[in-house]
């Protein structure tokens, strides 16, 4: 004898509740991150002869000290001096600011200087420490 088939109905009325709860979870768990920083145009390769002839301003970082054209200054003064150079009005070669780090320099101080150069409209050129 054949058994009588019963239609089993699935309750889907709570589906939308679950889905909306998931949406609320996604909205609350999402953090909109805006990345901030500085863009640096760091030229690659060696300095050309014509670039060597130009007297580019030099910043030296040495164990927490900042030297601008061999004169020790602080960060605020550095920003002021760089602004006085009016770098955006100059040609690309003249906008180069040499950055040399020696000794124990952390990325924090290096980044601060790079940001100042970038804000003043300069192009950072990294000077490698001479190996002994």
């Amino acid at each position: 004898m054949k058994k009588e088939r019963r239609d089993i109905e699935m309750s889907i009325s709570s589906f939308s509740d679950i889905a909306f709860l998931l949406i609320i979870f996604f909205i609350l768990a999402t953090t909109l991150v805006q990345v901030t920083g500085v863009i640096n145009e760091i030229p690659a390769g060696e300095q050309s002869e014509s670039e060597k002839d130009l007297e580019s301003p030099t910043i030296q970082l040495d164990n927490g000290k900042i030297m601008f054209n061999e004169k020790q200054i602080d960060m605020r003064e550095l920003r002021k001096q760089l602004a006085e150079l009016k770098l955006p009005e100059k040609t690309e070669n003249e906008r180069v600011v040499l950055l040399e780090a020696s000794g124990n320099v952390t990325y924090q101080s290096y980044f601060d200087v790079m940001a100042s150069i970038s804000a003043a409209g300069g192009v950072t050129a990294i000077l490698q420490e001479e190996e002994e």
């Binding site: 901030t36 500085v38 640096n40 690659a44 990325y107």
Partner: peptide, 26 residues
């Protein structure tokens, strides 16, 4: 921020040598 110069500087140089423009996050 606490990484030393002997670590990050060669990487910055490498990016520049590879032809990349650097957007340093801070």
């Amino acid at each position: 921020a606490s990484v030393g110069k002997h670590i990050f500087e060669p990487v910055i140089e490498a990016i520049a040598q590879g032809g990349g423009r650097i957007a340093a996050v801070g």
